[in-house]
Design a protein around this nucleic acid. Structure first.
Lengths: 234, 234
DNA sequence: CGCCGAATTGAAGCCAATCAAAGGGAGTGG
DNA sequence: CCACTCCCTTTGATTGGCTTCAATTCGGCG
C-alpha cells in the first residue's frame, strides 16, 4: 500500500470532486487495460515481484487473485491486500516495491509502465475513472484498517466478508481462494481464530460455506456486527 | 486532503515522482503561515471544529497541541492524531470534517481557507514543500497505524514515543500534554495499560518521567522494541 | 489407496480489558 | 496557609479473548 491513494491530493490538476465514482471495471475498460501489455500467467504461489525490487511498473489483475505481503525481520507476515480482477496494484511511492506480490490462485495479470498508464488515462476517461476509484478505495481501506485493529475477531471477519462481497460479486456468494492463514495475516488474527470465527458465524446462521465458497445469509447482521467499520457499500 | 492538486506538483499522472522531500516547517514558513489569518487561542479541551461540521478551512498549529478524534455511535473514542506546532490538520476529502478537533493544551492555531492556502502555496515553494511533507507524513503514519494494530502494548508505546521524539524535538526529552486516555485511544489501548506500560519502561531503564515530560534514555532499545514499525527518522 | 497440506477442534496460557481502589497534583475556598 | 475537592494516574485483582501448542479431520492429488 502507500500507493497513490494516500498521497495524491486531487483527482487531477483541475478535476471535479468527487470524481465520477463509476468503478469502471466494466468489460470495456478491463479489456482495454489488458490490451496495454502482455498478459502473463502465474500459478498459485508464484511471485510477481518481491519486496525491494526496482520496477516502474503497475499491474492489473485480469483474472484470479493476487496478494501483496510484507515479511518483517522476525518472520511475521502481513498481508497488505488482496487484489481481484480489474484491480490495480504495485503503484507505490518509492521506486522500489514496498511489498511482494504473489498469485493466490491461477492468475492472469497485465503489467505496464507508469508512463504507459499515464498516457492511457490521459486519453481514456474511463480508465482515468477506474484509477481514481481505485485510489479512493485504497484511501478508504487504509482508514478502515487503522480502525480495525481495535475490533474483535468477529468484527474483523464480518468486515472482511462484506468488503469482498462488495468487490467481487453482485450476489451474496463469494469465492475465497486464499487460505485461513492469508486471511489471518490480513486481519491480524491467527489462522485458528479465523477458522473458529467462521465456525461461529456458520453456527449463528449468518453464513454457509462450501469449500472456497462462502454465502452471506444475512449481510445486514454482518454489517451490524462489523460495528459500522464499512463505509457504505462503496 | 485530496484537494490540493491544482496547486502542488501532482505526483500523479503527469508529475515527477517522488516530489522533493524537504520538510519545510522552518521558522520562516511557520511565520508566513501564521500571518495568513487570525491566530486564535484555545484553552485545553476547547473544540476547534466538530465532526460533521461543514468548513472549507485548513488549520495549522502555531503553538500547543491539537487532537483530532472520532466518537463512534456506541461511545468508543478514537484519537486520529496529535498535531504539533507547524503541523497542518483539517484537510479532508469531503466538505464535512470527518473528525472533531480539540485543543489538548493551551493552543494557538491559525485557520485559513483552502483557496488562501492554494494561493500561498502557488507563490511560495517553501509552503508547498511543507504541504507535501505533510501529505507524505500522513501517508506514512496511516501505514504505520495499519501495522500497529498487531503490536503489543510495549511496541505501541515505543513507537509512539519515538514518533514524538522525531517530531517535536532534537533532544531526547519530550512533552506529552495529553492524558493516558488520549494516548490509549490513539494506540488502541486502555489508559490503565498505557500507565502500566510506562511503568514497565521506567523500571527497565528505558525512560524517565517527570510530570508531562518523558526522557528517552535508550532510543535504540525502544527502536528495537518497536519492532521496526518506525520508518526511519522521517 | 495413501499421502500431504490445510482446516477444524480441543486445551492451556498469556496479555490486555475491565472493575475497583488507592495515591498524587493542581486549583479553589475557607 | 491549609484543607478540601476533583481529576488523572497508578496499582491491584479478576475476567475474557486471542494465541499457541497439539491432535484430529477433511480434501485434493498422485
Amino acid at each position: 500500500m502507500l500507493q497513490y491513494g494516500h498521497v495524491l491530493p486531487a483527482p487531477g490538476p483541475h478535476g471535479t470532486w468527487p470524481p465520477a465514482l463509476a468503478w469502471g471495471t466494466g468489460d470495456l475498460t478491463l479489456a482495454r487495460i489488458a490490451s496495454l501489455g502482455r498478459v502473463d500467467h502465474f500459478s498459485p504461489g508464484a511471485t510477481l515481484y518481491a519486496e525491494g525490487d526496482v520496477g516502474d511498473f503497475v499491474y492489473c489483475v485480469v483474472a484470479g487473485m493476487v496478494r501483496t505481503i510484507n515479511v518483517s525481520r522476525d518472520g511475521n507476515r502481513v498481508v497488505r491486500g488482496f487484489h481481484l480482477s480489474g484491480e490495480f496494484f504495485g503503484m507505490e511511492r518509492a521506486q522500489r516495491h514496498a511489498s511482494s506480490a504473489e498469485a493466490v490462485s491461477d492468475t492472469r495479470a497485465v503489467r505496464c509502465s507508469r508512463s504507459q498508464l499515464d498516457a492511457l488515462a490521459a486519453s481514456d476517461s474511463q480508465i482515468a475513472n477506474a484509477l481514481w476509484s481505485w485510489l479512493l478505495r485504497m484511501a478508504e481501506r487504509a482508514e478502515d484498517l487503522s480502525v480495525i485493529g481495535r475490533a474483535s475477531a468477529a468484527q474483523k471477519l464480518a468486515y472482511f466478508l462484506l468488503d469482498f462481497m462488495g468487490r467481487v460479486s453482485t450476489t451474496r456468494s463469494i469465492d475465497l481462494p486464499m487460505s485461513r492463514t492469508d486471511i489471518g495475516d490480513y486481519l491480524g488474527l491467527s489462522s485458528e481464530t479465523v477458522s473458529r470465527t467462521f465456525t461461529t458465524l456458520r453456527r449463528d446462521g449468518l453464513i454457509t460455506t462450501q469449500g472456497r465458497y462462502v454465502t452471506l445469509l444475512n449481510p445486514g447482521a454482518l454489517q451490524r456486527m462489523s460495528g459500522g467499520l464499512m463505509r457504505g457499500p462503496s
